[in-house]
Design a protein around this nucleic acid. Sequence first.
RNA 1: GCCCCUGUAGCUCAAUGGACAGAGCGCCAGUCUUCUAAACUGUUGGUUGCGCGUUCGAUUCGCGCCAGGGGUACCA
Length: 583
Amino acid sequence: MFDQEKEYLISQLENYCKQNGLPTGKLEWRAIPFSGEWGIAIPLFPLAAADTNRKGPVPEHAMKLAELMKASLGQPAGFSRVEAVRGYLNFYFLTSQYAARVVDEVIDLNGKHGFAPLSGKASMVEYSNPNTHKPLHVGHLRNVILGGAVCNILEASGKPIIRANYIGDIGLHVIKWMCNYERYHQGEEPGEDKMRWMADLYAEADKRFVSDPEFEAEVRAYFARWDAGDPHVFALWEQTRDWSMQGFLQVYELLGEHFDRIYFESDVEESGKVLVDDLIRRGLAEDGRPENPVIIDLDKMLGTNEEYRVVVVLRSDGTSLYATKEIPLAIMKFDEYDLDKSIYVIDVRQSLHIKQIRKVLELMGYPWAERIHHLAYEIVNLPGNVTMSSRDGTVVFLDDLIREATERAFVIVKEKNPELALETAEEVAQAVALGAIKYPMIARENTKIVTFDWDSALDFNGQSAPYIQYAFVRANSILRRIENQIPEKGGFDHELHPSEVNLIELISRLPEEVQRAARDLKPSLIASYAYDLAKAFNDFYNQCQVIKAEGSTRESRLRLVEASRLTIEGVLKLIGIKAPPLM
RNA sequence: GCCCCUGUAGCUCAAUGGACAGAGCGCCAGUCUUCUAAACUGUUGGUUGCGCGUUCGAUUCGCGCCAGGGGUACCA
């Protein structure tokens, strides 16, 4: 946000280096640990270490250089003072001037603070990837939230994004469902809650499948009819898939997600088989049928040792597998769009598979293969690092989780704010509940396992989304007192309280946080930032009067509250969490 | 065996190679006649798994161990 000032100072200091025979290119900006004053710093250790004329230890020399540079700079415009301390050159802003600038900019941008203009080629992010006819569980939730947040953050950083979803619409799970439906629920149709209905029938089908050999045989026979292209089975498949998709759309709407391009597994199955023939002809794949599958022995071809292993691209009976479909899907994406990157949000257990697919595409001669990127994230486990299993009945369904969380949140909303109208209370409860369950999915690093337990999932206190939402509500509540009539520009000529300085500093840092999160594909950085921001606001709220402040102090603080409100709301939006106007 | 990930306060987690390793939960003690107490203040709590190295400086980078998890030819 202060690029001009930074550039100016760096150029001055680089000049100083040139004139005094010091190495150049060693100066970088750092934050100053917060001390109630607002500033930026340059550590001089790299310069001191690289200085060939250095005598004595680096820290002492860095300190000496800091003092010399401080003397040569004098008093730069826009800064209250320069300080040389412990090997750092610290520059403190003239707070009034900069505070006003930050706040003015944020208010003018009206929710777009932190956003860079879109430019360059689009990237595709594939995420969610559910199977039709099956219920969604907390594992799916992490994927959707993470993928959605990555998209939001990349877009905010200036990158056009295509949100893609690859749906598993064929397979044994689908046939099981259909067979059970035809046998026991013929003619029934889903009600309001399609997801729930599909899920219940799936559970029933699965139970029959494992416990009833007769049913299992029926399913196998049904699968054969599907393979033979039976029109009746096909029609039922289309119908039931559509119900399932409607259910997904309901959930996505609830979660605030949307997709630009939906791919179906069934779209790439045939082309995958054709592609496998091509691979065999080109000598890339070895056809071991009928006894053995069709494989690509990557290690043999590349001369590597247990690095790429073997990819099985077609079963020995000629049916398709994961890789059969992934390869044509990747090609389809690059055929349809001129992509900068193709990002796959898929859990870490599939790392080798994706690495193999990328390598196969490279061997096939596609130059874009290297632009495929796997965003690997860890799974959601139960306490004790126990992986959820449908067989043990330990899977936590998204549906149940959202319902339970919303009910609990509703009780708390009514308790905290009994005057709220029923409808409002329900809306608030939903925003709080969804926020609370989403936040832990995104607030830790992608590579860390999320441990799900009901107690912490339903805990609305502490480091959580409701805490951040509450800060937003408090800001709103102040502004409601003045009927959202935000005072005119300017102000901040009062003695700023440290909590004000801290808050403004955090607000000013959003653009670089967005860039960093986008560069590293780490929404967790934004989640932490959101919490820090809320904490800074609460601190300010507790220490500074706004409505009761006087004159220009009051006006400045009202503007600061507005800037905070906009920033908190925007940052929550980036991580897919709604900010309710009241709680 | 080989590959990948993780290891930081009692628990859950933060920390661009940079200043004193920070939050939340929990424990204990406080703060509502005040802009909403879903908040705030204070207290307690550390051999950053272990060792060696690189560096002016390592939780962060490299190597080697230890522990846990995952992957490793016809599941996805």
